[in-house]
């Protein structure tokens, strides 16, 4: 499927379109109808609502326009700033290791022999486990003193740590869980990407006397660039949208050291009952996502141009 070009459909279907142009105009919109109804209800309308709510405060008297004071409130809130910086650390600390590991796994397991298939499956297993379920296993793994990690560290005579209770460590423990959960998923994309590299490129490189590292640097990685960009976007999306493990493991604690943006939104909305702050924080997270989509759309457009141009 890698070879599929994003060809302009109108070119292919010109003859058909010419036959029944008017009716097909209408038909196109009708066929998009069902999707558009749901997109409107659960994507566009909520965005409008959030934008509106972010400049209003809910009180017993109803909603009052408050200008940007909700934004002032969240940026004045140490917990929010902490959530933002945590999210940045979390992004770097989960995306980079996951991608490097995933690429390493894919390179090592590219050939489909029996052992590799087993290894791939093992590395892929965490993807199938609900994040909450994984978290409830890791709750025990990270348990101080009696947990899996400390139990085996103690056997080596090493004092374990308070993995989820030490504000210096907790976020990294959460990140370890995330890398464990996602690396296998990204590995698959790289495996697919590797298949698309023409064997001739390797042969040519080998004939030129390139070392394995040089082949990685000058053949494999350039071919994988679109895959890397795609995985990067997915991984960043996960960073902003997945907080299930925070729920089970830390509730954002200790001292907000594992609070992430989406969890903060949840906290403000349902625990602290502050619709204005929740909406303002959502707007912040939306603007990040929009920037991310602008980035990926540009990439997609660029990719499409490479593959034959689009309207």
């Amino acid at each position: 499927m890698a070879e599929i070009a994003l060809a302009e459909p109108a070119v292919q279907s010109k003859r058909v379109a010419a036959l029944r142009l008017d009716r097909r105009h209408l038909l196109g919109l009708v066929l998009l109808g069902p999707s558009l109804v749901f997109l409107a209800a659960f994507t566009y309308w909520p965005v409008v609502q959030v934008l509106w709510q972010s400049v209003h405060a809910e009180s017993r008297a109803g909603n009052v326009y408050v200008g940007l004071s909700n934004f002032a409130a969240i940026f004045g809130d140490a917990a929010f700033r902490r959530a933002l910086s945590n999210n940045a650390i979390y992004a770097v600390g989960t995306v980079v290791p996951s991608l490097v590991l995933a690429l390493g796994f894919a390179l090592s397991l590219a050939r489909s022999n029996a052992l590799n298939v087993v290894l791939r499956s093992i590395l892929f297993l965490p993807v199938l486990v609900p994040l909450v379920a994984a978290a409830s296993i890791f709750l025990f793994i990270f348990l101080p003193g009696v947990g899996l990690l400390d139990y085996y560290l103690a056997r080596l005579g090493i004092q374990g740590a308070n993995w989820l209770g030490d504000p210096d460590i907790a976020l990294y423990s959460i990140m370890a869980l995330t890398v464990w959960k996602n690396a296998g998923y990204y590995m698959l994309f790289f495996l697919a990407g590797l298949q698309a590299i023409p064997p001739e490129s390797y042969e040519a490189a080998t004939l030129d006397g390139a070392s394995p590292w040089q082949r990685l640097r000058y053949v494999t990685l350039p071919y994988l660039r679109p895959t890397i960009a795609f995985v990067l976007v997915i991984a960043l999306l996960n960073v902003v949208t997945q907080v299930d493990h925070i729920f089970v493991l830390t509730k954002g604690g200790p001292s907000d050291s594992t609070n992430l943006l989406l969890f903060y939104i949840y906290q403000q909305a349902v625990e602290h009952y502050d619709a204005g702050k929740a909406a303002a924080a959502t707007v912040v997270s939306l603007s990040f996502l929009l920037a991310l989509s602008a980035f990926s759309l540009r990439r997609m457009d660029a990719g499409a141009d490479m593959e034959g141009g689009r309207a």
Binding site: T43, P46, V47, Q49, I265, Y266, L286, S293
Partner: peptide, 20 residues
């Protein structure tokens, strides 16, 4: 417009979506 939903996943909009 469709592509926007690739990023604006419903979960980020959980507060207004719950109201809807």
């Amino acid at each position: 417009l469709f592509l926007i939903q690739l990023m604006l996943v419903p979960i980020v909009l959980l507060v207004p979506n719950l109201r809807t």
